[in-house]
Structure formats: structure tokens, C-alpha cells
Write a protein that binds this DNA or RNA. Structure first.
Lengths: 217, 217
DNA sequence: ATTATAATTTAGACAAATCTAAAAATACTT
DNA sequence: AAGTATTTTTAGATTTGTCTAAATTATAAT
């Protein structure tokens, strides 16, 4: 697979292309920041290679083979993210761009050994699960911080929005994976929250609370 | 710089293009396993970008800027090689192919941090020097094993031939960088050597001895 | 110095991945 | 159900990096 092909497969998977419901050309174009006509061209090429099912004017969905390839790329991406954070002191918001490049490196041994070096992590720095070599993975048992009742405590396990802006916000406020968050108070009016992490108290907006995943204690 | 451009710059440097003496089109084509006409095309493009000096029918040599870029690529390549050997248990002969891919990853922080993780190595697994961030490096004080007199001892610091075949031979015979080699006997007839490493004695051909670098003790 | 040989360049073509503009198909609306 | 709007595809062009075959320049040899 070429780099471009890999990127399309990943984007299609990301849009839910592993289900039977096909993904629209426009949606893929949007996701990949490209033109619909380019997507059509690539859809034909990927169908040719048995990576996707493509029906004119209907859209694209991944074949078994396509899903397998998508998971392999995601595995590589997320393992590299762990490496960057754990071994090279990258912050949440810095990892994505570099991992986008590293995920295309072709070497089975490299990934196996990287996995070992990192001691077989199950989740990446955003809390997303890392598929195993055979493509298995399970979503973490988690819920949005906004769904937690007052007085409940949860461990921060991931983010919904992975935009640089949001991740930088978290970095700046020193909110990290693994932190225990307690909901002290809910403001009825705007659904904002008063929370506590260690000995620090914050006031966070509803928007923030709906983009942070926690695991109930 | 595109990947292709980087590969050309590296190849030209490798052929001695940092000196004033220009490198022939054919030599570059041979080195890169491509056709001379492709080299001509690329030479024009690189000259356009001020990375090389190109005179029709004369050949190509690197500009100051080109040398700088070449050293940056070599730095990345060799740091990745160290990483693969030190952290991921790759053998000498396995590193090159993967490092060829990794050297094109674009991220200054990545390389700085990798350098730190590896504790600022000065030499790669083949004994070649790693340029600093500013492009400085010095060749190791070394000589060929074949030049060592009988009874002399030397520490293995590098290889001249970096082919997979030669490196595999060394792996198989457990000859590694850092090993102390003592020349026990020289056979006049074919210039072969009897050597000792730790408690093991070998008989090695002249060809082997002219491809192993040692540092006299 | 002329010719033969080798190296290099040009011209034209191709594949991958993209784009724009126009055409075709599908979906929405009243 | 007809017409409008939206989505998708096609056709043709572009860029990058490569190739082959032919033409050109440089080098070597007699």
C-alpha cells in the first residue's frame, strides 16, 4: 500500500467504514481535506485492490482485508504516540503530527520491538485502545465527565476532542491522563462544573466536560 | 525537501560531493540504482533550489546549503540506527533498511529528544560518526585490521563494507563493535590472519581484515 | 586530427495523486 | 411528480519522479 492509500483506509475506518453502511464520498473528502473527485479516483483503486467495497454514487465501506489494514495502521500510530510521550517527553498535542508520519514506516520487527519496549501498552496517550498484532482491541469502560453526578470521582482516561487547541488547554491546566477528578458542584444554569484534581479546584465549562472521558471509581 | 530530493542529496554527499570536484551523473545513477536521465532531471531541480552546483556535462557538487542538509539527514539516519540497535535489539545488518525510512521523518523535536534518549551518541553501530545538530563531527582515529602488526591489539570500532552479507558474517561469528581483537599470526602466502577475541580464536581472510576498522590500544 | 566509444542530455511518455469544470445521478421540496 | 438543489462522477489537466530512445557532447585511440 502506498502512503496515500493508507491514509484513505485510515480515514474511512475513522468515519465508521468498518460497518456495512457505506461512507459518502463527500464525507471522506471533508475528513481528508481533499476534493470529492480525488476520493472517487482513489475509491476505484482501493476497490481494485479488494480493500473496500465501492458502488457508484453509494459510497465506500471497508472489506475484511481493509479493516485488517486499518487496524494495523492505527496500531502503529498509537504505539508511536505512546513512544513519543513516554520516551521522548512529547505533550498530548504534539504527538499526532509526528505519529502521522511514523505510522507509515514499514517494518514488522520495528513495531513488535517497539511494543515490547513500551511494555505492551493497551491505550494511547488520548486513552484510545491500541489494537493487538492480530487486530483485537476493546474500548475502555468510560463515560463523559459531564455525565458524572455531583460528589462522584473518576479517573481521567481519555479525550473526545483531540484537537490541538483542546489538548493545549488541558496541558496548560495540568489535567492529564490518570488524574482523579472529583465533581464538587454543578451549575444548573450553564451546566458548568466545579471540580477538584489533587488539591487544585477548577471551574470548567460544559463544553470541556463533554470532551473529557473518565472511568468511575 | 521531498523524499526523493533528500535521497539524491545523501547519495551525492556519500560520493564525495561535498568537495569541489563534481560527481558524475553516471556515478549518482549507479549509486541510486536509477537511470542517468533521471539524475539529470533531478540535478536541475536541486540546482534550482540552490542545493547543488550543476554544470551540464560536468556533474554535480553540493553547495554549503546542500552539505548542511546532507549532514542533517545523515545525523537522523545514524541516530535512528543507534536507537534500533540499542533500544529495539536490531542487529547490524537489519538497521539500514528501516533507518532509510526513518531518516525522512520531519520533526526537529523528535531528533533532539531521540538524541537525548540515546545519551548523545558520537558513533553509529557501524562506527561512523554522528554529526551534531550544527553539522560537526569527526572521523574516529582508526585503521584497518589488516594494517595491525602481529601481537598488536585493537578495539573493533567500525566496518568499511556495510553490505548485509558482511554484517551477517560478523553477527554469525559474534564479532561486534567494542570487541578487543589481537592479531596472533599473519600468513604471508595469502595475508590471512589468526586472531583472538576474548577466548575465541579465528582464522580470517585478508578480505575480512581489510573491511574491519580497529583502534589501536 | 579524425574516428570510435562512452557519458550525458533532451524529448516524449507514463504512473500516482491530485485538481477544476462540466456532466450525470440522486435527493429534496412543494 | 416535476423541478431544484446537492452529491457524485467523468474528462481533461497538472506535478513529481521516473523511464526509453534518440541526439548531443566529451573522451579515448589510432
Amino acid at each position: 500500500m502506498t502512503r496515500a492509500e493508507e491514509n484513505y483506509i485510515k480515514a474511512i475506518f475513522h468515519l465508521g467504514g468498518a460497518a456495512s453502511q457505506p461512507i459518502a464520498t463527500n464525507a471522506i473528502a471533508e475528513e481528508m481535506d481533499t476534493k470529492p473527485s480525488s476520493v472517487t479516483d482513489m475509491a476505484k483503486k482501493l476497490a481494485e485492490k479488494k480493500l473496500v467495497t465501492y458502488v457508484k454514487y453509494q459510497g465506500v465501506s471497508l472489506t475484511e482485508l481493509g479493516i485488517e489494514k486499518a487496524l494495523a495502521i492505527i496500531r502503529k500510530h498509537r504505539l508511536w504516540e505512546v513512544f513519543l510521550v513516554k520516551k521522548l517527553d512529547f505533550t498530548w498535542d504534539e504527538v499526532h503530527e509526528v505519529a502521522e508520519q511514523l505510522e507509515h514506516i514499514k517494518s514488522e520487527k520495528l513495531i513488535d520491538q517497539l511494543d515490547a519496549l513500551l511494555e505492551y501498552p493497551k491505550y494511547d496517550p488520548h486513552g484510545d485502545p491500541i489494537p493487538s498484532k492480530t487486530g483485537e482491541f476493546k474500548e475502555r469502560d468510560k463515560q463523559l465527565l459531564s455525565e458524572l453526578p455531583v460528589q462522584a470521582k473518576g479517573v481521567c482516561v481519555g479525550v473526545k476532542d483531540t484537537s490541538s487547541a483542546f489538548l493545549k488547554f488541558l496541558d496548560k491546566n495540568k489535567i492529564a491522563l490518570g488524574d482523579t477528578i472529583e465533581v464538587l458542584e454543578k451549575e444548573e444554569f450553564d451546566d458548568s462544573l466545579r471540580i477538584q484534581i489533587d488539591r487544585r479546584q477548577f471551574h470548567i465549562s460544559h463544553l470541556i466536560a463533554t470532551n473529557l472521558y473518565v472511568k468511575k471509581e
